[in-house]
Design a protein around this nucleic acid. Structure first.
Lengths: 339, 339
DNA sequence: CTGTTAGCGCTTTCAT
DNA sequence: ATGAAAGCGCTAACAG
């Protein structure tokens, strides 16, 4: 048999090649300049001979060159991607937040990876660990991690929290007081004297809301009682209805709109009229709030802004004075207290 | 001054080092073996001396070693991340789909990046281009790209379509016939003879649904007319109501639940009773369907399964026989045709 | 079974 | 202003 191996050692067939992605070497070869010049031309505009730069760009375009992010990440340590970790992609609450974060990431020409933790601290820790090795920074939403863990993460990777409270890392949280205050006043003016709060997952956020509401209620000499739902889902909300009915409250505020929706659904199913028998106020004002039966009064949080601010903070831009404030949106799930 | 440089060339201070992330070199040094052995120990279990392997793992754990994905991607060309590109993260329709995709990606220990295209073909092309250089494969949802572009992408990167129809790439689409057929029969049995279809964005999916409905309707000697909404959002749905009312149809089916919700909302606002005056059937059965006023009858698509199947296809697993079928969920937005 | 040796594509001193 | 060369952390032939 003829052995063809002996001939010319053509390692890199400069002529054809099976559609390999072009590298800076290809464009360097084409222009008979060095790869480092190409690199500079593409990355430090203005720092090299203008005409060479122009040529480089031209060839790059012609070849459809795009830098290999991995190859770039190796020497620089920067990956150009950021991580967003949240409890549950499926929760509409996060929509606007995701949008906000995504927007500023894209403005910077970086890429965003979204990971969810299924509301489990375990998974959350694992997810973050996995992410850490491949992102330049993380924004973490409504974390279940302790300050210790958060601090440990922060030591290795820039991280900021959104919609969570922690002393360990910088965070962006809206000011709940205005919205909650208005909600309580609204209820009070409607004649409600006994109100309830249906809490969400354990955590500082939930505690802060409850505490705030509690203090304000006692200050107004309203009675207030806390119910805890088994999660922050529609079903969890529905499940809690019997207890709120039994308690004798005439109005409830909830941790979020999902549980409020659950309560509405259960009311409808059991024939208890909202708001004649029970008023309900949600939190977050997700898109379905105006669609439900009846349309849900809700404390709106500026989720998109929160996301945006959090990401900007991660990028090093100090928070502008712009306060992130909540407000009450009144619809039809609140009405006069039953006599 | 004493020049200490002359002595031992201690390039890498093996003693301290400022908390650098450990590499396989560190663990190799610690064990006085070669880095490649470490690599093998960690990646090809069983192919090397068992006790060495055990030692390597021990030290790796002790040092908290995690491989640098970028460094690994370079020689292998595999990044271990997959891209999911969809029109609008904000659309609840995609929830379950995202979940499905995410699930199988995680099962494989890979990571998922989600990108949205704002329903723009332009952005979509850019997003995909950007993604191509950093992922091992893409699942693309409801694409607006033409077969030509899709084919071009497919030539460079494994890609599968979900909820889209194309000859250029492998796709996963549910069988709409059962759900749509049942819906039409449901309407027919309720006495409706003139029905409408409110379409979504131009595209094969929309066309397929319309054509199917059209054929079936004429076969039943029902009259059917198509309305086109300016998008597939709640607002777009609301905006189309006057036209459907004016047309004299007694029932409408919609491209998706969002536009159905819009119609419901507009009806409520204008005092037209659903279903007494108009019956409406949505598509997708998103979570808010059961919450709306009235609860929305909808053709449910197995979104999670679609996502799962699409991703599995991308991983090379041939689609199992398991048919992806749609079904009608009857709630309270459909009723007898007005006399 | 294990060590040596090249790279993967790009950035970055250091020279020139 | 540009080129040469080293190296980021890992994998993959290729020897032993």
């Amino acid at each position: 048999m003829a052995d063809e191996t002996g001939g010319v050692p053509a390692k890199r067939p400069t002529t054809l090649g099976p559609a390999r992605r072009p590298t800076i070497y290809d464009i360097a070869a084409r222009l008979e300049i060095s790869p480092s010049t190409v690199s500079r031309a593409l990355n430090k505009p203005g720092r090299i001979n203008a005409v060479t730069e122009a040529r480089v760009r031209a060839v790059a375009d012609e070849l459809g060159f795009t830098p290999n992010p991995m190859a770039r990440a190796l020497p620089t340590g920067r990956t150009g991607t950021y991580g967003l970790v949240l409890p549950d992609i499926t929760n509409p609450v996060h929509f606007e937040l995701i949008r906000g974060v995504e927007e500023v990431v894209r403005e910077h020409g970086d890429t965003l990876v979204i990971a969810e933790t299924q509301t489990s601290g375990q998974i959350e820790a694992a997810v973050v660990a996995r992410l850490q090795s491949s992102v330049d920074g993380i924004v973490i939403v409504a974390s279940r991690l302790g300050d210790g863990q958060l601090a440990a993460i922060a030591a290795a990777t820039p991280i900021v929290g959104a919609n969570l409270m922690s002393a360990a890392i910088p965070t962006i949280v809206p000011d709940i007081s205005l919205g909650l205050l208005t909600a309580l006043s609204h209820l009070e003016s409607l004649g409600h004297r006994r109100v309830g709060y249906v809490g969400g997952p354990e955590g500082r956020i939930n505690t802060a809301r409850w505490t705030f509401l509690f203090d304000q209620a006692v200050a107004r000499e309203m009675s207030i009682i806390e119910f805890s739902a088994a999660g922050s889902s529609v079903d969890a909300g529905a499940a809690v209805l019997p207890r709120v009915l039994a308690s004798g409250v005439t109005a409830v505020m909830t941790y979020n709109d999902l549980v409020a929706h659950g309560i509405l659904r259960a009311c409808h199913a059991q024939g208890v009229h909202v708001p004649a028998r029970l008023s309900v106020i949600g939190f977050d004002d997700i898109f379905s709030a105006e669609l439900s039966n009846p349309p849900l009064s809700s404390v709106r949080a500026p989720l998109a802004d929160i996301g945006r601010s959090a990401m900007q903070l991660l990028y090093g831009r100090p928070p502008d004075g712009h306060e992130l404030v909540t407000e009450l949106i009144i619809r039809e799930s609140t009405g006069p207290a039953p006599a």
